[in-house]
Amino acid sequence: MSLMSLSSLTVRRGQCPVVDHVDLAVEKGEFVGLLGPNGAGKTSLLRAALGLLPHEGRSSLSALAPAVRARTVAFLPQGREIAWPVTVADLVALAEGGAEAQARAIARMGLENYQTRRATELARALAQDAPLLLADEPAAGLDPEAQIRTMQVFRDLAEEGRGVVASIHDLGLAARHCTRLVLLHRGRKVADGAPRDVLSPENLAEVFGVRGFHAETEDGPVFQPLGVIR
């Protein structure tokens, strides 16, 4: 059974669709990178899938009762607000996934040694111990080490049989670490599959207006955007 299935999911702002009839199923073991330029509908797609945004079409998550949904899917939103100066332990404990899940999340994010705001927020989402994690721009604004560590955590989760969907702006990071990419353009899903196929020269030109370079290295596949073509 899929961890999440969207069928014909549509979000409108006024008359204009910002997410336009998107079908998407996420299975166990997948780390799906959600790509697309600014305004492509990545955030709206994630929020509508969770039921945080009014939408048409169907999402397997949005109809769930809030408490059931919290055990089915964890969410790391883009707006990283911490209203009060609470301790790291209190913050991670908000997830209510149990003491064991909390300890695992704290260890996974290395919070015993070094605590950053972002790592703490991700640990909170992990402590929810849900089979699926949706993350909105988890790598944005991180230093290279933190970016790679975050991606590694997502890959580990996928290898443990969970699912991860993360919107990612950095195409190189996505190509390098995701098991599958989904490309959004003006609210529509225009490509879905293996990183190398999704980041084809045609898709890159059509959606991002750039060209790029793929290579296989001993560390795995590498992609580098090279230049603007229009």
Binding site: R47, L50, P66, V73, P77, L91, R124
Partner: peptide
């Protein structure tokens, strides 16, 4: 209210109605 410390989206995703 504890969950709301992280904003409305995060609170809702943690099961707060």
């Amino acid at each position: 209210l504890d969950a709301l410390t992280l904003g409305e989206d995060a609170a809702q995703s943690m099961g707060v109605d």
